[in-house]
């Protein structure tokens, strides 16, 4: 989770852009998913129109039952459940990526909309700022 001081000087410009966060990496192996989630929360604090998508290994980020005690790394993934509190409600998972990994929506720790590749293509095409990747 970001520090409180990250929210200082909240954006007053009134402009709302569509921010897309693309999660394509598995959690814990690298820090990218953790720090990308921090970017999501900040954009939400700026009252931007935030969409978060999970595809490829990114779907593993929201796998239920992650227990990082044994590897000594802080488990950031419960923070995905806080997205709703930040009014980040547009979470999409690509069906093809889930199926390729033997997962279903039941395996995920947050409510998401499972979409086809064609649907995801349309969602991802209509954005102003794309982060993650």
């Amino acid at each position: 989770m970001p520090d409180e001081n990250e929210f200082e000087g909240e954006y007053q410009g009134g402009t709302v852009k569509r921010f897309l966060y693309v999660n394509r990496r598995a959690p814990h192996g690298t820090i990218y998913p953790h720090e990308t989630l921090e970017m999501v929360l900040i954009a939400a604090a700026f009252d931007q129109d935030v969409t978060v998508v999970f595809l490829d290994d990114g779907v593993y980020q929201i796998k239920k039952d992650q227990d990082t005690k044994g590897i000594g790394i802080k488990n950031f993934t419960p923070a995905f459940r806080a997205l709703d509190d930040y009014d980040v409600e547009k979470l999409y998972v690509e069906k093809e990526s889930l199926e390729a990994r033997g997962l279903t929506a039941e395996d995920l720790l947050v409510p998401v909309e499972v979409v086809s590749t064609e649907e995801l293509r349309e969602i991802m095409a209509e954005q102003d700022v794309v982060l993650g990747g």
Partner: peptide
Amino acid sequence: HDATQAWL
């Protein structure tokens, strides 16, 4: 282009 997406 209207926006840029980096596939990393």
